[in-house]
Each structure stands twice: as structure tokens, then as C-alpha cells.
């Protein structure tokens, strides 16, 4: 059975993955105008600077949308079905896609508060996960 998809980081995206490995969600920030962008990319679309630094996300999030995966599009995820993929708004102005933990989709509504957590998969890759805030 093929393993789960693994990222092939570029120099521009490696700090994101290095951050996750340390249990931190790192977001790319334009060093010129301060705009935070996600997913990481070489150029700021506002001021076109290619200088960037990285800031750690606050860990807060709210529900924007979601889906529940039922069909096994990939054999390596079959044992986890059904799983909930949440699209979450971050107060930093970007969004995060991550699996929901310790709750079902019935608890979700747009604007529902979430907390970002971290979890290593069986291949040792640390990924962000989302839980209901205050739960």
C-alpha cells in the first residue's frame, strides 16, 4: 500500500514544515509591508518584496467551512474514514486546512471557535489538527 502523501519542501516552504516538527504553526510574513501570506510563496502580492520572515500563529481559529471524507480516495487514509477536514479562519488573516479531532461535524458552524494542535502521523510527519475551543 502506498504511504500517505509527504511534502517535498522547497527553500521557501521549509520553515513551515520545520515549525510543525517543533509543534509551532509558522506563517510567512513580508519583511517590507508586514502582510502575512499562506501558503508560503516567494513574492508578496501587495508590495512585491521577496524578503520574508516567519511569525508563529496565535493558535486561535474559527470555522469557515468543512467536509467529511467518506470515500477512500487514497488507501493510506482508509482506516481513518470518516474524517473531518476543517477550513479555518485564523486571526492572522489566512486560513488553515486541518483534520478535526475529538468532535464530529455536527458540532461545526461557521464562526465556531477552534484551537490549533499538532499531531505526528505514522510516517513521523507533524501536521496541524483542530479541536473545539473550550471543549
Amino acid at each position: 500500500m502506498p504511504g500517505k502523501p509527504m511534502p517535498d519542501p522547497s527553500p521557501e516552504t521549509r520553515p513551515y514544515w520545520d515549525g510543525l516538527a517543533e509543534g509551532r504553526l509558522m506563517l510567512q510574513r513580508c519583511a517590507e509591508c508586514g502582510r502575512i501570506r499562506h501558503y508560503p510563496q516567494p513574492m508578496c502580492p501587495s508590495c512585491h518584496s521577496m524578503a520574508a520572515d516567519w511569525v508563529e500563529a496565535s493558535g486561535e481559529a474559527t470555522v469557515h467551512s468543512w467536509t467529511v471524507a467518506h470515500h477512500p480516495f487514497h488507501a493510506a487514509f482508509r482506516a481513518e474514514l470518516p474524517y473531518v477536514l476543517v477550513t479555518a479562519d485564523l486571526p492572522e488573516g489566512v486560513r488553515l486546512l486541518a483534520q478535526l479531532r475529538d468532535a464530529t461535524a455536527e458540532a461545526l458552524r461557521p464562526g465556531r471557535k477552534l484551537r490549533i494542535g499538532f499531531e505526528a502521523n505514522e510516517a513521523g510527519l507533524t501536521l496541524p489538527v483542530l479541536r473545539l475551543a473550550g471543549a
Binding site: P5, D8, S65, W66, L97, A98
Partner: peptide
Amino acid sequence: GEFEAPSGALAPAQYYAPMARRHME
């Protein structure tokens, strides 16, 4: 492929379903 597939978003149905869910909500 880099930022969503590792979490299990792998196919068009999974990419587009959140658009439909948002519309419903």
C-alpha cells in the same frame, strides 16, 4: 499537493465540498 494532501485532502470532491458546505451554511 504540498499543504493539503498530507492531511487527507486528495481529490476534487474533497476540494470542492467545502465550497458547497459554505454555500449551504
